[in-house]
Amino acid sequence: MLLTCTDVRKTFGASVVLDGLDLSVDEHEVVALIGASGSGKSTLLRCVNLLTGIDDGTITLDGEDITDPKINPDDVRQKIGLVFQSYNLFPHMTVLDNITLAPTRVHGRPVDEAKSQALEWLARVGLADKASSYPDRLSGGQQQRAAIVRALVNSPRLLLLDEVTSALDPELVGEVLTMIRDLKGDTTMVLATHEMGFARQVADRVAFLDKGRVLEQGPPEQVLGDPVEPRTRQFLARIIEAGRL
């Protein structure tokens, strides 16, 4: 197992966001987290990346307990990529500088090498002509693709994607989803998403989160097509009503 979360608990004041959550992810596996807003998807991703501390339980990466307080969070984050719903590109840097910042400053790679690797990636995702543009000159879909490249150039063991398409209009969603689908196989991914069609296409396993736990998980066809739990069925029915499946 690459990632295991065991009995993870996280509270914000009185509200319990993760309530004894268990989840494990194999190498090269793609796991889609689905569930209503507030079910704990984003919080789980932030906890795995140690941006937020947990209140109880254990998270291991490559068998190492990363929730041990003696561990240096910076070392763990170097192995995990995180892509945000609102892109969070650095507005004062060009797209190229955004992408080469971590390789040169964190991983100590030579600037030329980092640059040519970044340009290769940008070409691969159709952004070669945007390398020297500032993020505010890019469309939302282009910004999100650049943000995904920024996470990928560090060759993370694990890529976390936090509702990466929910800030995009429908026409731009497609280009980001295509890019993620192309990454499947090389990269281990955990993605929180509201796009059920995408989860079905790209995920090896879908996990339905409810009230801070994984209520049901399995192959996409089973969880999305023939769920066992009444709560999952209810959630999917609402999604179908809203026309998102």
């Binding site: 932030r46 984050r77 910042l101 971590a102």
Partner: peptide
């Protein structure tokens, strides 16, 4: 912005 920077390992 800080979260994005820290998530990159900075």
């Amino acid at each position: 912005q800080i979260a994005a920077a820290r998530s990159l390992g900075l």
